[in-house]
Every structure is written in structure tokens, then in C-alpha cells.
Simulated scan of single mutants.
Amino acid sequence: MTMIRAARDDDFFPWLTLYEGYAEFYHQPLTDQRSVKTWQWIVRGDHGLRAFVAENGDGDLVGLAHVRTIAQPLEGTTALYLDDLFVAESARGAGVATELLEFLRSLASSEGRSGVSWITADDNAAAQAVYDKLATRTSWVTYEMAAQSTSSVAEESGP
């Protein structure tokens, strides 16, 4: 049986193992500095970031979910935004992702939020198979734009 709970201060190293797996899955280099910064955001609640973990019957962490509250202006509501969801390879296929998502659905409801939203890579078919059973696939396309460097902004602003 899996238990979903909020991450605790003493979860850092097991959480880090999962977070490193998440970064590796998405081919994103993860530095110690970024890992520590993210963990500090979680334990201090910076940026509204919260972490929930899935703990198996042996007490091992086998999954993580990072969420934050977002405003949804057109609806006049707030929702939970799922930034990261990861299940250890050893626990995949056992329903851990579903349990994490159902937990977040219940959390959103208990907090008076309108729901939970997230994005995933278009080639992550295994995750999408789970998501399609629990949520509605939207037609939205996601874009990203890097911020200008500080020197570029200063040049455009002029003296």
C-alpha cells in the first residue's frame, strides 16, 4: 500500500534521488545548487511550491509531485498546478502516479480549488496513458520564451 504525504525536512536525500531521476528522464542536467535551491523552496514554501511524496509499505519514497497554487483569471478561481510528477522506475505500473494524481484532486477540492492542471512532454506516451484515464486532454499549446539578459535590457532601456 502506498501512502501519499507532504514531504518532510528529513526526506531530502530520498527526495533528491527521485528528483535526479526526474531530471534524467527529461534529459535536464541537475546541479547540486539547483537541487538545494528547489528543496529550500519546498521546505520554506517559497513561490508557493509544495512537495508530496509517495511512500511504499517499506517506508521508501517511490514518487513525488511538486505543486503550487495558480490563479485562473478567466474562471475567477484558483487551481493547483503540477510542476513535476515522477515515479521511480521500480514502482512504475503499480498505480503510484494515479494515487498521486487522485491525492492532488482531493487536495484541490479540500482547499476550494477548481482543479489540477499540468503539461507533459508530447512523446511521454506512458504518462499520457495514465493522464488520459484521469483528466481531460486540452487543446492548448505551450510556449516558452527566455528572459532577456540583464545587459540586453539595459541597452534597450537607454541612458
Rank of each mutant, 00 (worst) to 15 (best):
R8Y: 03
A94K: 09
N124M: 03
V43K: 09
L107R: 06
Y19R: 07
A91T: 11
L16K: 02
V96T: 11
S109Q: 06
E99Y: 01
D58F: 09
A146S: 15
T69K: 05
Y143I: 08
G48C: 12
R113T: 02
I4N: 08
D11T: 12
L104P: 05
E75H: 14
G57W: 09
D58M: 10
Y131G: 02
S35M: 07
T150M: 12
R105H: 01
D9V: 08
S151H: 06
V87W: 10
T150I: 13
A135Y: 00
L82K: 03
V43N: 04
A65W: 11
G63P: 03
A154R: 15
Q33N: 07
A121G: 13
S109N: 00
S149W: 05
P73E: 11
F103N: 06
Q72N: 07
V43M: 05
S114A: 08
S152M: 14
F103C: 05
R113L: 08
R137C: 08
A129Q: 14
R5M: 11
D122H: 03
F25G: 03
A108Y: 04
A147Y: 14
W140H: 14
R68Q: 13
F25L: 15
P73S: 15
M3Q: 15
T120W: 02
F86I: 11
E55A: 10
V87H: 08
L100P: 04
A54K: 01
T78N: 02
Q128M: 11
A91Q: 06
L74K: 03
Q28V: 15
S35H: 05
A79C: 01
V53S: 11
T38E: 08
E144T: 14
W41L: 02
G63I: 10
G76L: 05
Q128D: 02
D123N: 15
W39R: 00
V130A: 02
L16H: 03
I119F: 09
G158N: 10
A54Q: 03
F86R: 12
F52N: 05
D83W: 07
G112M: 02
F103T: 05
W140Q: 13
A129N: 06
D32H: 15
S90K: 10
L18S: 03
A88K: 07
H27A: 09
Q28H: 15
T98D: 00
R50T: 15
H47F: 11
G45D: 03
A121Y: 09
S151I: 07
S114Y: 02
A79D: 04
D123C: 10
S109L: 06
W15I: 04
E20I: 05
G21C: 10
G112C: 03
Y81P: 01
V153T: 12
F12E: 01
V36F: 06
F52P: 02
A7G: 08
D83A: 13
D10G: 10
T142P: 01
V53L: 15
F86T: 11
E20D: 06
L104G: 00
Q40W: 07
A97E: 09
D123E: 14
L107Y: 05
D9C: 03
E144L: 09
Y22A: 00
L64G: 04
S35W: 02
R8V: 04
E24K: 14
T78W: 00
S139R: 11
V130C: 06
R50C: 15
A126H: 04
A54P: 00
A97W: 12
Q148S: 15
A88M: 05
S157G: 07
E111H: 07
I4E: 09
R8D: 05
R8Q: 09
L16Y: 01
T2I: 15
